[in-house]
Nucleic acid binder design. Sequence first.
DNA 1: TGAAATGTTGGGGCG
DNA 2: ACGCCCCAACATTTC
Length: 495
Amino acid sequence: MDKMALWSGRHTTMASNSKPCLYLHRQDLRLEDNPALTAAIDSGRPVIPVFVWAPEEQGDWSPGAASRWWLHHSLSRLAEAYKKLNVELLFFKGKTAEVVDRLIAENDVEAVYWNRRYEPAAVEHDKQLKQSLKDREIEVHSFNGALLCEPWEVETQQGDPYQVFTPFWKSVRQKIKPGKPLNAPKEMQSAKIKVKSCQLDDFGLLPKLDWADAFTDTWTPGEEGAREKLSEFIKNGIDDYKEQRDFPAGRGTSRLSPHLHLGEISPTQVWHAVEVHLNRKRKNDGQPGADSYLSEIGWREFGYHILYHFPKTTDKALKSNFEGFPWKYSKKNLRQWQKGNTGYPIVDAGMRELWETGWMHNRVRMIVGSFLTKDLLLSWKKGAQWFWDTLVDADLANNTLGWQWVAGSGADAAPYFRIFNPILQAERYDPKGEYVRRWVPELADLPDKWIHKPWEAPDEVLEKAGVTLGETYPEPMVDHFEARDAALGIYKKIK
DNA sequence: TGAAATGTTGGGGCG
DNA sequence: ACGCCCCAACATTTC
């Protein structure tokens, strides 16, 4: 018996008549490495795990359609995992505070546990909930279950939040030493539930239409799926990550983002798995793949740091000179971009991958983002909203950071003149056109030379490939070089 | 985590 | 053998 088991064992003896505690699941849909759950169990009380579906508590940023699909399946897996421990995960709809109050009143709950959140609306909500519980002398315990480093744990030498990634990450790496992840509970005491809960299906998270069919082929939501993705990536991907990560046709990236978003796996678990992997290899061997991968975990941390300290950035540019930027809203242009009909194959491939699988490779996110904000001069918020609705990994911190970054209005942002050339990017990162052929099949028969710029292909080449521009595939909706000049002019003005 | 424009260098062709 | 030109390759600057 290890120390932990003895500890909880000691409490178990007195627990038979002890009052239960509540554990609120939010974006931490896992049993392993879960500090709030572990603490709740270690308190010696029977634990009532609860998930409350309360989208209105997330303000303007309640989960989009793709995220809801994921959430449904993740919750379903989580409920199964609890069932194996003979515990029921309770589902409720409505206001979290009211659910908690009911459980306190009718089920004698005397303590509440959760892992902290960092989204502006969530911070506000949880702060109030905590205060109201404290006022009534109900125990409240919150934990860090989502970050290597919480936003208030690092600051610049001047005592300000970081706004540039490199010094932020350097500081975090010096500071943090993630330990071994906590084990999943082997056993739990269940409480006798006296409160009526609802069914997962009552949340109505699944889409009415079957657009999510392809999602099922691509993804395995839940803790188990997350664990498998991680070990597969550590085994086959991480050593070549630095070289392979930018090629969207390949499998060079971990694809852990949706799992991380809902906390099906924690960054601590990721970090630890990377360390174990490195320790197995020869030392002083260099570890460019691992460093490069961990710095992506770092960007996630940076996103949370920025979101916490600059909560308005979900809707407003961080840089004040972007106030009143003359974005050119056009419903038609936005629609063409959303549907992947811009006439730029790499952009269209990305947008269609997103629509069909709920995910897009990061290199392509940058390309389509640059295209929206610079070539079309459509506001980054339009892009952020579309991604919010369609991405299974839609995460307020990452989405906000990414869009403000690409627009040039945010933290450590691309300088205003950094405009991606969709043809060059495509030729560099999809040299054989595999990615474009997969997602834009109407161009599949074009030779490599023309796959990324069909409008320049000779007529006979187009004909042979069965491509008629304007009919089977759109003409480019804008001329990139003209659009670039126009964007440079505007961006220069606001500098 | 950019791309284009401009500047520099050096080898080879050629008178 | 020399100077000149061209231009690719690379470096630097600029947007």
